[in-house]
Amino acid sequence: MRYVLSLLKEIVNKRKLIWDLSKADFRKRFVGSYFGVVWMFVQPVVTVLIYFFIFQVGFKSVPPVPGVPYVLWLVPGIVPWFFYSEVLNTVTGCLQEYHYLVKKVVFQVEILPVIKLISCLMVHGFFILIMLAMTLCYGQAPKITWLQIFYYSFAAAVLALGIGYFTCAVNVFFKDMAQIVSICLQFGMWLVPIMYQEEMFTDKAPWVLTVFKLNPFYYIVAGYRGSILEGNWFWERPTLTLYFWAFTAVMFLAGLKVFKKLRPHFSDVL
């Protein structure tokens, strides 16, 4: 716990440095690209269109929220997943990317994953605005529960950062970790009812819903959709909320413990 408090203190003390490095990291993604920031939207938009045509046009999927088009039900589920997966992928390789900072004795390498997280949050902010604009264009009235998007984005960020501390530390010594994370994210996307309705399985096997809820990201997806489409508050799911934060706290502390143990050897390997 003392290590967590020292990390929080370091983040507060170095907040200007973290912000400047995060902005630089965001700009660096598109250096030399002709279309620049446009590429940030291309792949996610194409992905949404593919799932839209497969599930709504092809399979004629009907979303569980009456009067809501499938694409409007899909987007609040897939937007947080794009953010979560991008954070995990970028944080996993951040120590190699900033190896010149890792080798500096005076630099606190614990803030590197935070820098990547904030950079990804900038991208996520754009997608939140697009999601809300799309919701309004489909005739949905604004809801006060939309403010919960900040809470659920924070929850997804803490979960991804906790796992990211573990994966980035291990990746220094085991380079295949980045590929393992990428494959797990591709597979894990289908373990959360993002593109399909959970009723497809729970109607025949009710126990499947419990399996879905054991995945902590189920809480994020359900929260986004509940906030945007149904006007639900997070305290209406007290058991799921407690489970999510208990799981996230354990993962965060475990990830930091591994990071702290391996940290003295980072500069030697890099």
Rank of each mutant, 00 (worst) to 15 (best):
V4D: 08
V4K: 03
E10T: 14
V12S: 14
N13Q: 15
R15W: 07
K16L: 15
K16I: 11
D20R: 13
A24C: 15
K28G: 12
K28E: 15
R29C: 13
F35N: 12
F35P: 15
M40L: 11
V42L: 12
Q43Y: 14
V48M: 12
I50Q: 07
F53V: 13
I54S: 15
Q56C: 07
Q56Y: 09
G58L: 01
P63W: 00
P63V: 02
V65R: 04
V68R: 03
L72P: 03
L72T: 05
W73K: 06
V75T: 08
I78M: 02
V79W: 01
P80T: 02
E86D: 14
G93T: 07
G93S: 14
C94E: 05
L95Q: 01
Q96S: 15
E97H: 09
Y98G: 07
Y98C: 08
V102Y: 02
V102K: 03
K103L: 08
K104N: 13
V105L: 10
F107I: 05
F107M: 03
V109A: 14
L112I: 08
P113V: 04
I115G: 06
I118Y: 11
I118V: 15
V123C: 05
G125R: 02
M131D: 04
A133F: 12
M134E: 04
M134N: 02
T135P: 12
C137V: 15
C137I: 10
Q140R: 14
A141H: 10
K143I: 00
I144Q: 11
T145W: 02
I149W: 02
Y151D: 14
A156V: 07
A156C: 11
L159E: 00
L161M: 09
L161G: 12
T167I: 10
V172R: 02
F173A: 08
F173P: 07
Q179T: 10
L185M: 09
L185G: 07
F187Q: 11
G188S: 02
I194V: 15
M195G: 12
E198K: 08
E198L: 07
A205C: 10
A205E: 10
W207N: 04
L209N: 09
V211G: 05
V211M: 06
V211N: 00
F212K: 00
F212A: 03
I220W: 01
Y224T: 11
E230K: 10
N232H: 11
R237D: 05
T241V: 11
L242N: 10
L242K: 12
Y243R: 08
Y243Q: 05
V258E: 06
F259K: 06
K261L: 09
K261C: 02
H265Y: 15
F266Q: 00
V269S: 04
V269H: 04
